[in-house]
């Protein structure tokens, strides 16, 4: 057989393997997303429970904006209530997930199957985004009805910023989930410890960066390293100050870069931890 024919056969085989890997990747991601969505939508109580915290907090803070003297800013608190649900989801249902999977024995099955962990994490993110949507929308609708904050009708820019913020945020979740894999109960405590400070620094309920921020420049610079900060800032500026792509391009490009970087770092860390775990045997500590 000629070398060309051999190369052709090998190339066909290679393409077949690649195609099969791609099919598995897609199936795993879609099924993981679907399971998460089914678990959340299949039980309406989930939505009721998820709405509670963000809704009441954002209503209380919107009321505080009113009392402070500027009713037009109540929208900041309402938008924060809509977005904080995602931040909570990233920490509790994304970053901690692999750690919980480790403790339940599920991680063992994931690793002992051909399913790529990247597909599982992307699927989990997708499911988390879709699953949190009703809670987020409910908070926005209730807040808007009660406080009637002035805002610009959503545009393509809002959609783009919103999507990029979520990608960057869930990318951060992927990175954290890899790190939490080596921790035990500490991961829950770290989550508890991270939730409020990151919410504060990223300015979920108030502008932590930019011209309206009351924080010193040095703190603003640190806060800008958190993708959520840039996303919240851009969302506020599009929704409440009608700014467009021309003004927001620095936020958008930084968000895109952060999203790519956090996903990349997360996946690299994950593969490192998996490899190290196979060598030392500690990846499944918590399981028999």
């Amino acid at each position: 057989m000629s070398s060309l024919a051999l190369w052709g056969r090998a190339s066909r085989r290679g393409r077949g393997v690649l195609r099969r890997s791609f099919v598995i990747w897609v199936k795993v991601a879609v099924s993981r997303a679907l399971i998460r969505v089914i678990a959340m939508y299949g039980d309406p109580l989930w939505i009721v429970v998820n709405v509670g915290g963000p809704m009441l907090t954002s209503l209380a803070l919107a009321f505080l904006y009113m009392l402070a003297g500027l009713s037009s800013l109540t929208g900041f608190a309402i938008l924060g209530g809509g977005m904080v649900a995602y931040w909570g989801n990233v920490l509790w249902s994304m970053a901690s997930q692999l750690n919980w999977d480790k403790r339940s024995g599920m991680l063992y099955l994931y690793i002992a199957s051909p399913a790529p962990l990247t597909a599982l994490l992307i699927g989990m993110s997708l499911g988390g985004i879709l699953g949190t949507l009703p809670s987020s929308i409910a908070v926005l609708i209730i807040g808007a009805l009660l406080f009637k904050p002035p805002f610009t009708p959503p545009t393509i820019t809002v959609a783009l910023v919103f999507m990029l913020t979520l990608v960057a945020l869930y990318g951060m979740g992927i990175a954290l989930s890899s790190l939490y894999l080596i921790l035990g109960r500490e991961s829950e405590e770290i989550n508890e410890a991270l939730y409020e400070p990151i919410s504060f620094l990223s300015g979920i309920y108030f502008p932590s960066i930019g011209r309206f921020s009351p924080l010193p420049l040095a703190i603003q610079a640190i806060a800008s390293l958190i993708p959520l900060t840039l996303g919240m800032d851009a969302l506020r500026r599009t929704l409440f100050y009608a700014e467009g792509l021309a003004e927001l391009w620095p936020n958008i490009s930084a968000l895109a870069a952060m999203a790519a970087a956090s996903i990349l770092i997360g996946l690299r860390t994950l593969s490192f931890i998996e490899r190290r775990g196979r060598e030392t045997g500690d990846i499944l500590v918590g399981m028999k």
Binding site: L61, L64, Y65, M66, L67, A68, G69, L70, L73, F76, A77, E192, A193, L194, Y195, E196, P197, S199, F200, L201, I204, Y205, F206, P207, S208, F212, S213, P214, L215
Partner: peptide
């Protein structure tokens, strides 16, 4: 986190009142 929670409320007030 407790301090951050308290500061969030303070900042919300300060942003609104300063404006």
């Amino acid at each position: 986190p407790a301090t951050a929670g308290v500061l969030t409320a303070v900042m919300v007030y300060w942003v609104g009142a300063s404006a």
